[in-house]
Design a protein around this nucleic acid. Structure first.
Lengths: 343, 343
DNA sequence: CAAAATATTTTACGCGCGTAAAATTTACTG
DNA sequence: CAGTAAATTTTACGCGCGTAAAATATTTTG
């Protein structure tokens, strides 16, 4: 059936025997037209491949159906996966996700927000870089666009924050490690990229003190988002200067732990909880690769599903409330301890 | 200076004392207006924050400035990095990259192309899933949109293909391994997701036969893109059923090798080239994590920069030629051997 | 310096669609 | 079945901008 090509909504309305605005209504919400009308449109749709011009649509709509998703580092499988999960929820809700990665770079983060602003999104889900973020730029963005922060909090910025409860992460790992062996020292970057790291350190200190133990924090050098490399080099440095103060090391996050484990391996330090092991290592995040480290990594897992689900729900609620909440919301989800071979 | 808000190009043209079309010309190409005119516009731009409405612009332009980038799996740091590199080149060229990941899913890949088609991109850089791709859908897309394939070839599809020379990868690893120890067996998935895997197997067999050696291919079970898990389980299975036919294993790709190394570690098999090592392992791709495996992984590296650079250049050339080349082009770049500790 | 050639700007029109208000149809009442 | 309320469709207008053709300014030529 060599039906002639449909060029615009006008022509499509003609072949379905309706007026263009009726068809327009249908595309905005198929249930907003009478059932018989809907059938006619859908019948025509099967014969006449037509899709509304996305630019013309968005030019006139008060609010686009675009949802921006910004994560600090797309090459980190952790963020890639959570972004993926959010994307799917956004699509299910009938919106169009636009995924952008900031590549650990302050300027890129601002560029991303700038770029999002120009496409007039209905809302944005933003996992900020953290410490190095241009705070005032992000704040001004959040004032202009309904924004929900996730993963990494910036106090007072955005209409809501959804994340994991760092205290819950650390309490569980510290408790487990203390119960089953030497109390851990804490391994982290000197200048962490992300506020979660600070919360984790504080939670570690608090947990240790609560147990009447002496907290020991090891801070290693390094800038940026190449955490494995930083953890690797930092571990070499620590070992070179006398070793860890405890045979049990709790890493701030899994990517540091991956570097640490590689360095331990190179030094012939056997990691694990069995006989003949020189040390135990645990961490936080349940990074996708933490199952495949040597040994596999004992860690505290985020509740991916809850964080992404609640983030999306909150954003849609925000959008429906006209872009404002009476009060900023913060939601934290507890961690789940994953026991593997490293501790 | 509380300048009144500029709402559209008309108003902006007014405050700069020009007609709107002149301003329009400027935004399409700043050099297309007289120098004095340009100065006036840029002066006004500093006082009056204004940016053309992206939807209105793209509605009327013959060709948008959008460039689609599709990779098979964004949660794989290898693709995340190459995508990043391509993104930057696209931005430098004054275009707008739209990055999409197919999540190892045939349907998602088609959705991505569908979604790209609706934004009428000037061109698309596509790294197809490979075997499981919906070939006819991709072909029909390539006919409608100027498309350059990269990483994974599909014979005859797209105007060009840019990738790495699998023969060069395998020749180098096989040669090195044979020179320095026992000739390798080849470790791969039974039904590889990606045509590169087939090329690598054939290259391995050819290289071994050329050297008068007996090729040994080990094919493990597993579907999908969770290569580490597949390599891990596959290795356990191989070990349980008597072990590898050679003490030297060449993996089809680094992600399989990561799983293999984890499994070897669990079995207490020491990997490396030193004394007391039970086996050697090498691989292909130089995955970002291959520096941090235990032991660090000897592998053949892609020339990221060349592949991404040439892909982008080729696409722009394609766009300038009106979306067609007289003849389909294929460009392959050689690998670089990276010696680490595993072999 | 006038006229022709060229570069630049303006006029005029249309792109494809959203949406308020008006007109019409359908559903519901008694 | 007439009459009214509610749901639906149509009329009419405008969004913000690209672009060909016409008008004007600038540069070059003789």
């Amino acid at each position: 059936m060599p039906e002639k090509k449909i060029r615009n909504m006008e022509e499509f309305a003609a072949v379905s025997g309706l007026s263009r605005p009726t068809v327009s209504k249908y595309f905005n919400d198929p249930d907003s037209v009478r059932a018989t009308t809907r059938k006619r449109i859908e019948a025509a749709l099967e014969r006449h491949e037509y899709r509304p011009n996305i630019y013309a649509v968005n030019q006139n709509r008060r609010l686009t159906k675009n949802i921006g998703i910004v994560v600090p580092y797309l090459a980190d499988p952790f963020f890639a996966e959570i972004a993926r999960s959010i994307e799917m929820l956004v699509i299910e809700a009938g919106f169009r996700p636009i995924l952008l990665g900031s590549h650990g770079d302050r300027g890129q983060e601002i560029d991303n927000l700038e770029s999002l602003r120009s496409i007039k999104p209905a809302g944005v889900l933003l996992a900020p870089l953290g410490r190095i973020s241009d705070r005032s730029a992000i704040e001004s963005f959040c004032k202009a666009v309904p924004t929900v922060l996730f993963d990494s909090n910036m106090e007072g910025t955005g209409a809501a924050f959804i994340g994991s409860d760092n205290v819950s992460f650390v309490d569980q790992t510290v408790d487990y490690l203390c119960r089953t062996g030497t109390p851990p020292c804490f391994f982290e970057m000197k200048t962490p990229a992300n506020p979660n790291a600070n919360k984790r350190r504080l939670a570690y200190i608090a947990a240790m003190e609560r147990a009447g133990l002496d907290p020991q924090v090891i801070k290693i050098d390094g800038e940026g988002w190449r955490f494995e490399e930083i953890g690797h080099k930092g571990t070499h440095d620590v070992i070179a200067s006398g070793g860890f103060p405890s045979d049990t090391v709790l890493c701030s996050n899994d990517r540091l732990a991956i570097g640490l484990l590689a360095a331990c391996y190179e030094h012939g330090l056997r990691v694990g909880r069995g006989d003949g092991c020189a040390m135990r290592v645990a961490s936080h995040d349940d990074h996708p690769y933490s199952r495949f480290t040597c040994p596999s990594l004992t860690t505290a897992a985020h509740d991916y599903a809850e964080v992404s689900g609640r983030s999306v729900d909150t954003l849609f609620e925000l959008i429906e409330s006209g872009g404002r909440f009476d009060q900023r919301r913060e939601t934290l989800f507890a961690a789940r301890l994953i026991l593997r071979d490293s501790a």
